[in-house]
């Protein structure tokens, strides 16, 4: 048995289109997840006891169940409550919500790891509560959460492969379809692995670049 990558690479335009969908859902989903997670963490931190209690359960459920189950529930279960979504929209929404639960935790830890003394110094300098949040807490937190936040984004990228199971025309679905048409199943898997790996390396490289530029800010 010999490998034949040429038959798959012949379908490069299709592969690129799948790659495009993957990147769109990855970048868009990560962005939405960061924003949503940030809002949730901020509400939990500053919104009072009631909000904290209300938000805790959904976050625990999202973090305590497999992503696959969540998107199946969203895509196949949604119609039972009148929520009929295009596959790609369900996928984007799924990634955003799933990621948001983790980002909410990352930001919560970030808020906690800003030393109390830094806030006290700001109070003594006369900064108002809102000024302390925007000028001190958030920028300091950004430094602390950068590594775990990038790491989470890499995890989200890999989770997008599961969206092939709800027929989102992303990279995994596209390449696997080509593979079975061309009777080159293993080759398609190898190519998939290489492309995802390249994307992860790219993300890590961007992360290292950002960290290097910020490293002078931390001891």
């Amino acid at each position: 048995m010999s490998f034949d990558f040429a038959v798959i690479l012949a379908k490069l335009p299709q592969i690129l289109s799948g790659l495009g969908v993957t990147i769109l859902i990855w970048v868009g989903g990560t962005f939405a997840a960061v924003v949503l997670g940030f809002v949730v963490a901020t509400l939990r931190r500053f919104g009072g006891r009631g909000i904290e209690v209300i938000l805790r359960a959904p976050i625990e459920i999202l973090r305590g169940t497999p992503f696959l189950v969540q998107i199946f529930l969203l895509y196949f279960g949604g119609p039972y409550i009148g929520l009929r979504l295009d596959p790609w929209l369900a996928g984007l929404l799924g990634i955003s919500i799933y990621g948001a639960a983790y980002y909410a935790e990352i930001f919560r830890a970030g808020f906690q790891s800003v030393p109390v003394g830094h806030v006290e110094a700001a109070e003594c300098a006369g900064l108002s509560r809102n000024q302390i949040i925007t000028a001190i807490l958030l920028p300091e937190m950004a430094l602390l959460v950068l590594p775990p936040a990038l790491n989470m984004s890499v995890i989200l990228l890999k989770e997008t492969a599961l969206l092939s199971l709800i027929t989102v025309p992303e990279l995994t679905m596209t390449v696997q379809a080509i593979g079975s048409q061309q009777y080159a199943f293993v080759e398609s898997l190898v190519i998939l692995a290489l492309v995802y790996w390249a994307l992860v390396e790219l993300a890590n490289w961007l992360g290292r670049y950002a960290e290097r530029n910020l490293s002078k800010l931390s001891a």
Binding site: P115, G117, H118, E120, A121, A122, E123, C124, G126, S128, I136, P139, E140, A142, L143, L217, S218, A219
Partner: peptide, 20 residues
């Protein structure tokens, strides 16, 4: 409180400078 506290400057053992 901010008005009265504005007469006071505080220096901490751990400096508490803002690292960013």
């Amino acid at each position: 409180l901010r008005r009265v506290r504005s007469r006071i400057g505080m220096v901490f053992q751990q400096f508490n400078l803002w690292p960013h």
